[in-house]
Design a protein around this nucleic acid. Structure first.
Lengths: 330, 330
DNA sequence: TATTAGCACTTGGGAAAAAGAAGTGCTAGG
DNA sequence: CCTAGCACTTCTTTTTCCCAAGTGCTAATA
């Protein structure tokens, strides 16, 4: 259990280090706390013993340890409201009626990255709410046709499939069948329905049912229900803790679409709020902090994630995410 | 006019510098050329006077100047055929029947970047060959509908438009009209046709023709006929000439989608072959070289561009691009 | 008992000096 | 025209030196 003064000191060190990225010495603090630097030093020593502070070398000032950041986040951070400026810019997005839901979200991400110099990520997945609205087919050459799938939430996906020498009538029959029988089915159940309801029927009606069935099956099976969006990768270059090419390289590799998708997917907060993973607590990079939240809209469920250095403006990011989550869910 | 020996020396220096990025001294060359280093030195001095070589400081070895690279590219470079390995990997792509035209191209880009550690870019534009094949509309809620446009080449684009309280019958009438009257029109002429052929008619037939017309007009007007694809941005980190964060930052900014699209668009070779722009010759970055070629397929016209440091493996990149251009155009 | 002033000590960083490596230009002789 | 030899230049690396920042400890103080 920390004394009030110890908390105060820890907090000052965290905030100061976040601001300037330089180890914090006792002199800086004794000004604010009206006591001598010697006193502060002995308190700092205690905090270091508790594992909340670290030194970069024997005679340096103190730097928060991971545990120190954690303590700050859990007990000391004040959730101040957003700055007027941040607020204003975000509201411009959400009050812009021109923008569709999806554009709002990606605009917000862009804005977060721009304002904070961190990297923001969205991983969305078309929710169970998405059901098949309509499927249509446009033949574009002898051998190729385009299959277009629309969900009730307005997702559209299309695929070019090659079906040499297929009978167009058969295709139309199949499409009609699908439109009549399985419209309204949740996207993730369609494969099953195709198998058990459509396949048996076209097996009788349609000549080349085998090939045709497989083609349609593939269309739905590959329905991209995960989409990832990473904004502001370049921002890591702006933080001095990542001042060498190797580190930057390593992090940028992690940010590659395939990589990051699975990493982000595995981030699992223990509540539905905003979750913070500091350094080794996260699976992206032990020198970074990851802040995550989930959102649920009629169209999709997903995560918004902000990644930055451990000395991140925690309070600011949390309030930004809160605001966005709240607004996107309406 | 250079003597044979001078050419030989220039060539060795260029190749050596490309390989190791270290200024080349006279000793290294006299081994290969069977003459003393003093002789080489005096030749080097001549080449420097001609502006083909440079020194980094008074007593350093020589480095090719931009003019030197240019001379190499114009007169000394041998177009060797691709290495077996490069060839094999590329052929795997083009002989894979699973892959559609578009996937082939992006796979090739990915491969080039991976093999060479440069950045490759594709800027494609749906060619004039693309004509409207079909337009369809799917209403997904009271106020929203999805408009889907398909071209004869199989491009599909869709847009969610909000039309509160619109009469669905009117929408259908308009869609039918478009499908009957302007199918077959090249994409880039559709806006005009809408204006002069469709607008006057629906003005009579359809109640809210104003709003409806505008909505459709927007769909076609925003038809994304340029698509850009940048692969391997991270690769600049791998070259020592870009060893500091500022330079990397600056280049990565240039690679941002919007930026690079217009930059690439302005690259104009003077022939239909492969064009090389060294350093200040290009508009992307004066420390880099840009190699470009155009391709023309039934589906689209476009450019493939490779960007890397000036000490680039010119011969290799040229042969890679030649191969891809040739294969993609079939 | 908690705080403070004072002081010796440690470390990193930056400047200056020293030593070494790489390579040049020039000259004189074959 | 070529080459061996040598003085010279510049960069790079290493070493040395010194200063600034900041600590920990001790003894005195409120």
């Amino acid at each position: 259990m920390l004394t009030e003064r110890q908390k105060e000191i820890l907090k000052i060190i965290v905030l100061e280090y976040i601001k300037l990225a330089k180890p914090v010495g006792s002199n800086l603090i004794c000004d604010t706390l009206n006591c001598s630097s010697a006193t502060i030093r002995s308190e700092m020593a205690t905090l270091e013993e508790l594992g909340l502070l670290e030194k970069t070398h024997t005679s340096s000032g103190r730097v928060p340890s991971e545990k120190g950041y954690r303590y700050y986040v859990d007990h000391l951070m004040e959730l101040k409201k957003m700055s007027a400026e941040d607020m204003l810019k975000l509201q411009l997005i959400f009050h812009n009626n021109q923008l569709q839901y999806n554009d709002c979200l990606s605009e917000s991400l862009r804005l977060i990255s721009e304002m904070t110099n961190y990297t923001s990520i969205k991983l969305g997945s078309t929710s169970h709410n998405n059901t098949l609205k309509e499927i249509s087919v446009v033949p574009i050459s002898e051998d190729n046709l385009i299959v277009i799938v629309v969900t009730n939430m307005g997702y559209v996906e299309h695929k070019n499939i090659a079906l040499p020498n297929i009978n167009l009538e058969d295709v139309k029959k199949t499409v009609n069948l699908i439109n009549n029988m399985i419209v309204g089915t949740p996207i993730d159940e369609i494969s099953a329905k195709l198998e058990y309801e459509i396949k048996p029927i076209i097996a009788n009606y349609v000549e080349e049912h085998e090939r045709l069935y497989n083609a349609f099956y593939n269309v739905f099976n590959n329905f991209a229900n995960k989409n990832i969006d990473v904004v502001g990768k370049k921002n890591i270059l702006k933080h001095k803790e990542f001042g060498n090419i190797e580190k930057v390289s390593q992090i940028l590799d992690k940010f590659d679409d395939d990589n990051i998708a699975s990493l982000v997917e595995n981030i699992q907060g223990n509540n539905n709020d905003i979750n913070i993973f500091i350094g080794k607590e996260n699976n992206i990079d032990e020198d970074m902090t990851v802040i995550e939240t989930n959102y649920h809209t009629p169209q999709e469920d997903g995560k918004i994630v902000v990644v930055g250095p451990k000395r991140m403006e925690y309070d600011r990011v949390v309030s930004l995410l809160e605001f966005i989550k709240e607004n996107i869910e309406r």
